[in-house]
Amino acid sequence: MLRQLRPEGLGFVETAPVRLVFAREISAPPEEVFTALAGDVPGWAEWFSAVTRARAIEDTSLGRDITLRGGIRFVEHVLVAKSPEVYAYSVASTNAPGLRALVEEWRLAPAGTGTRVQWTFAADGSAPFRMVLKAVRPGLGRAFRDAVTALDRRLAKH
């Protein structure tokens, strides 16, 4: 069963109790990366291995319905979709235990002919949740690097 989380705006990426920030440069241009992030919601399951299902929600008050490996589900509200610079969303409801608020921000910047991709994972939750999240930071970093690398390969084929 999904439960509502505390709504947070984009400013939460700077003030959250737990902020995990990862960055990587890829060869795809920012416009293509932005389109993959914001415009091809089902495509996330093809390049982000933690995502098993992703679909856009037609209701304009929400944005995406995401299922992760292990059955964790997020219903997200898109906060910002400013091409080709930033794509950010907050989690409106989830079945993840201990989570109280979550905002994710993807910042894109030109890097030569490619893109510097920065992902900020900003969260609040119970003390045990925060401890676990900090402990899994290396794994989230690997998941990000693998996902962005897979996205870059996918975009090179198109």
Rank of each mutant, 00 (worst) to 15 (best):
M1N: 11
L2H: 11
R3D: 08
R3L: 07
Q4A: 15
G9E: 04
V13Q: 03
E14N: 13
V18L: 10
V18H: 00
R19C: 07
V21I: 05
A23L: 00
A23E: 14
E25T: 14
E25F: 01
S27W: 05
S27N: 12
A28N: 05
A28S: 15
A28W: 05
P29I: 00
P30R: 02
E32N: 03
T35F: 09
A38W: 11
G39T: 08
D40W: 14
V41N: 06
V41Q: 02
W44H: 15
W47F: 08
W47P: 04
A50E: 14
V51N: 09
V51T: 12
V51P: 00
R53F: 15
R53T: 09
E58S: 13
S61E: 14
L62S: 09
R64M: 15
I66E: 08
I66D: 01
T67M: 13
T67P: 01
L68S: 02
V78H: 09
A81P: 04
P84G: 03
E85C: 06
E85I: 06
E85D: 14
E85V: 12
V86R: 15
V86G: 02
A88D: 06
A88I: 08
Y89C: 11
A92V: 12
S93N: 05
N95R: 09
N95A: 04
P97R: 15
G98V: 12
L99F: 04
A101R: 10
L102G: 03
E104T: 13
E104N: 13
L108P: 08
P110R: 14
G114L: 00
G114K: 05
G114Y: 04
T115M: 02
Q118A: 11
F121L: 14
A122W: 01
A122L: 09
D124W: 05
G125M: 07
A127F: 10
A127L: 11
F129M: 06
M131A: 14
L133Q: 11
K134H: 07
K134M: 13
K134L: 15
P138E: 05
P138I: 03
L140E: 07
G141P: 09
G141Q: 04
A143R: 00
F144R: 05
F144V: 05
F144T: 05
D146L: 06
A147F: 11
T149M: 03
A150K: 01
L151N: 07
D152A: 04
R153D: 14
R154M: 09
A156G: 02
H158C: 01
